[in-house]
Amino acid sequence: MHTFKPVFLALALAAAASSVHAGDDLLVHRVQQEKGMNLPAKGMTMAEVEKRFGAPTSKLDARGGGSRRQPVINRWMYPGYIVYFERSRVIHTVLNTPAGNNKDPSNPR
């Protein structure tokens, strides 16, 4: 019975390590995919994004803004990606992919 625990632990650790590696591969693929696309760039203003990419399919409710350390974060949804703004400037654009957890950011879990 005592030899079973170390074997089980070794198998569990090996399974965890392989799932982390698979997650890293998905992240690398996602970053490469984003680099090859024409997406809103960090620093663009809301007006620049709307002029270049058109109106978003939806503008989600703003989050944050309670203090200077927690600025207002706005999120605009486009087909295939979401643009995150700090106040009125782009801070990140994220693809809506099956590997991501951002398929429906308007419905937090």
Rank of each mutant, 00 (worst) to 15 (best):
F53S: 02
G23R: 07
G64L: 06
L95S: 00
P56Q: 04
N38Y: 04
L60M: 09
G65M: 09
V7G: 01
L11S: 04
L39C: 02
K59R: 02
G100E: 15
K5Y: 08
N107Y: 10
R68A: 15
I91S: 15
K42W: 04
P105V: 06
R52D: 14
G65A: 03
S19W: 05
T3P: 05
M37P: 03
R63G: 00
D61E: 10
L95V: 03
A99K: 08
A16M: 13
A55F: 06
E48V: 08
N102G: 03
Y81V: 02
A17G: 04
R30T: 13
G80I: 00
H2K: 12
A55M: 11
M1L: 15
A15Y: 04
R109V: 12
K35Y: 14
P40K: 02
G66N: 11
V83Y: 02
K35R: 15
W76M: 09
L9W: 12
V31K: 14
A62P: 08
S58M: 08
V83A: 01
E86M: 07
F53V: 03
P98C: 12
A17E: 10
R69I: 14
L27N: 09
R52S: 15
L11Q: 09
R63I: 09
A17P: 05
P71S: 03
K59Q: 13
A16G: 12
S88M: 09
R63Q: 10
R89P: 05
V72N: 04
T57M: 00
G66A: 14
M46S: 07
H21V: 12
A16R: 10
G43D: 05
D104M: 10
P105L: 14
P98G: 08
V72P: 01
R63C: 02
L13W: 01
V28R: 15
K5W: 04
V31P: 01
N96T: 03
K103P: 05
S19R: 10
G100I: 08
L13I: 07
L27I: 11
P40R: 00
I73H: 05
F4A: 15
A15W: 03
V94L: 13
P98V: 14
H21N: 10
R89L: 13
S88Y: 11
D104A: 12
F4H: 13
H29S: 09
R89S: 07
Y81K: 03
G65N: 12
K42I: 14
K35G: 07
M77W: 01
V31S: 14
P105R: 01
S19H: 06
R89T: 09
F53E: 00
N96V: 02
W76Q: 04
A41H: 09
K35V: 15
P6Y: 10
G65I: 06
L95F: 01
Q70F: 05
V83S: 00
P105F: 00
S19L: 05
A55S: 11
Q70K: 13
P71T: 04
A99M: 15
A41W: 06
A12W: 10
R109S: 04
A10I: 10
G64P: 07
R69Q: 13
Q33L: 04
R87A: 06
P40I: 07
V94D: 13
N107C: 12
K42T: 14
G23F: 07
T3F: 06
A99W: 09
E34N: 01
S19T: 14
